[in-house]
Computed example of a mutant assay.
Amino acid sequence: MSKVLVVVDHVDGAVSKPTLEVLTLARTFGEPVAVAFGAQAAQTAGAVGEYGATALFTVTDPVVDEALVAPRAEAVAQLVEQTGAELVLLPSTLDTKEIAGRVAIKINSGLITDAVEVSGAIGEVATTQSVFAGNWTVRAKVTHGVGVVTVKANSVPAEPAPAQPAVEEANVSFSEGAGRARITASEPKQASGRPELTEAPIVVAGGRGTDGNFGEVEALADALGAAVGASRAAVDSGWYPHSYQVGQTGKTVSPQLYIAAGISGAIQHRAGMQTSKAIVVVNTDEEAPIFGLADLGIVGDLHTVLPAVTEQVKQLKG
């Protein structure tokens, strides 16, 4: 059976949901084998095994935590050769996309990033992507070498297929230059109790129409167990942190449900959310461009509509 190498995205051993989705996808192409980095890499064994990985290679050399992505890319490239993997899959994050690009160059293979659908078979992997600020949906195919593909969160449902992965420290080496760019300081992101924006199945986003008051947006998000997002206009006005911006110059999301409240729908915002499976729009301006994407549109004041919806959600949840 063909082997598919999956790069694990984790924080202190806690595996991200997009990684579980990628492992699920990997099983449609062959036997998933995983690689995890850092001192807690071995702690990912339970999660990756639950979703079908038959082997877990750990890379715990301190350089992978101290340096930027170069050592990780070198390790992945070596593991492709050692395992005979015929496909490399990664969840789409800023770091993993850089790793993917470096790996593709090292192994002389085709690269596709931000796929929302991956199909075909080993040797003829095809993908669907949203490109050019979301104005086009395209199909692409890896035509050379081992395919290297990054997959957007929420592109496939994560489905368990329990296995007992063999855990092994990878036998890899690093070049002299791999560790030259190093992390000098970091601090943990303050926990909000809400899911990560790019991974959440539901996102409630606010824009200029909030007038700086995100209280109703946050209340609905908490009732739904959703993440909070914001438009560029809202973050540029200082109403919400830039790390929550959805759009071409912010984060790209593809949740099952996207609720846009008080957002007009400038093209840069649509580029970051229009691959959402279902879109609900609340806006006082019935001519707002974002209504063109809506599965359900409500012409009304978000400060009236959202509290009513929040109350109904709470009642239904009991």
Rank of each mutant, 00 (worst) to 15 (best):
P62M: 10
A278W: 02
V280Q: 04
I279W: 02
E50Q: 14
E187M: 15
A230W: 10
V76G: 01
K189W: 01
R208E: 09
L5G: 08
D285W: 06
D285I: 05
A227S: 13
A288I: 04
Q78H: 06
V76F: 07
A278R: 08
T150P: 10
H242S: 12
R102L: 14
A36E: 14
A70R: 08
T83M: 14
W239T: 02
A308P: 11
I267K: 02
I259N: 01
T19L: 15
V33Q: 09
A223N: 04
V235N: 06
S2Y: 08
G212I: 02
V172L: 14
V309K: 14
K314P: 12
A75L: 14
S2D: 11
I122M: 04
S175F: 05
S254H: 04
Q164S: 15
E31P: 06
I298H: 11
K277A: 11
H303L: 04
A115I: 03
L306C: 13
E21G: 11
R72S: 10
G110S: 15
P160D: 11
F57S: 04
V172C: 12
P32Y: 06
G110Q: 09
G212C: 07
V217N: 07
L23P: 10
A133Y: 12
A67T: 05
A104D: 12
V305Y: 00
L90I: 02
F132P: 00
T304S: 14
V281N: 10
V116K: 09
I99N: 07
V156E: 00
